[in-house]
Computed example of a mutant assay.
Amino acid sequence: MAWWQLLLGVLAGSVLLYVVLLALLWGYARLHPDTVSAREALRLLPDVVRFIKRLAGDGSLPRGVRVRLGLLLVYLASPVDLVPDVVPVIGYADDAVVVALVLRSVVRAAGPEALDRHWPGSTTGLQLVRRLAGISASGPA
């Protein structure tokens, strides 16, 4: 097998994997529209960014949690996305899914008390973030 055939195979496999991931993301966004709407997420964005910065700076949280939050901030600030934001629906959905997954992971490691302690916004916003993180009013989902 020539080097160019190998390179072509790797490229085709990468494109196929990317298309499959996009399809999964699209499916997730379509199956879970009630989690948090795009309008609600955009309204929450400034509070969520401040919240993530506060959590990342909390020395009482485990180092792994702070590292995940720091990487999330870098991802959100980066112009490079899994799906470009110009792609309708899933362009912003990928950011929301990544934030939700990291928040769920952080809540499992740090506990929901960390959410309550560091949330800078309104009570309504905190309820939306708790829903995004998979926490009901009575505890983790």
Rank of each mutant, 00 (worst) to 15 (best):
L72V: 04
S136H: 05
L42I: 11
V67S: 05
V106I: 08
A114C: 07
V10I: 15
D47K: 12
G59K: 13
A110W: 08
R50V: 05
G121K: 02
G57A: 13
A110D: 10
L55M: 12
M1S: 14
V48A: 08
S122I: 01
H118S: 00
V83Y: 07
V107Y: 05
L8G: 12
P88K: 02
V15I: 13
P120W: 09
L55D: 02
Y18V: 09
D81I: 05
R117M: 05
S60P: 04
R104N: 10
V107W: 04
D47H: 15
L31H: 13
L11K: 03
S37R: 09
G91D: 06
A38Y: 09
A110N: 09
R39C: 00
V102D: 05
D81Q: 13
W4Y: 14
L45S: 15
L25P: 03
K53V: 10
L71H: 15
F51Y: 05
A56F: 01
L31Q: 15
L73C: 10
L7N: 02
L8N: 05
R30M: 08
G57R: 00
V87K: 04
R43D: 10
S122L: 06
R39Q: 12
D34R: 11
A96N: 00
S78I: 10
V48M: 15
L6R: 11
V67Q: 11
A41V: 09
R63C: 01
W3T: 14
A2E: 14
R68A: 15
L101M: 12
S138E: 14
V74S: 10
V36P: 02
A114R: 06
S136Y: 02
A133N: 04
T35Q: 11
I135G: 00
L71I: 07
P62K: 11
K53W: 08
R50C: 06
L45T: 15
D81R: 15
L76V: 14
I52A: 05
L101Q: 12
V10R: 11
H32D: 02
S138P: 01
L42H: 15
L6P: 00
V97M: 00
V106F: 06
L25F: 06
W3C: 09
V10H: 06
P62T: 05
L31G: 07
D81C: 09
D81F: 09
P46F: 13
V19I: 13
D34A: 12
V106W: 00
V102I: 14
V48Q: 11
R117I: 04
P112F: 00
A29C: 08
A56N: 01
V99R: 05
L103A: 07
I90P: 01
D81L: 08
A56G: 03
D58Y: 10
L71G: 14
L69Y: 04
G121V: 01
H118K: 00
L45R: 15
L115T: 07
R50I: 04
L132Q: 04
L76A: 13
L44G: 04
V65W: 02
V20W: 10
P112H: 00
R50Q: 13
V102T: 09
R130D: 11
A2H: 13
L42V: 13
A141H: 04
T123Y: 02
S138A: 12
V65C: 04
T123A: 13
V87C: 07
R130Q: 14
G64A: 10
R68N: 15
V87A: 08
R30Y: 08
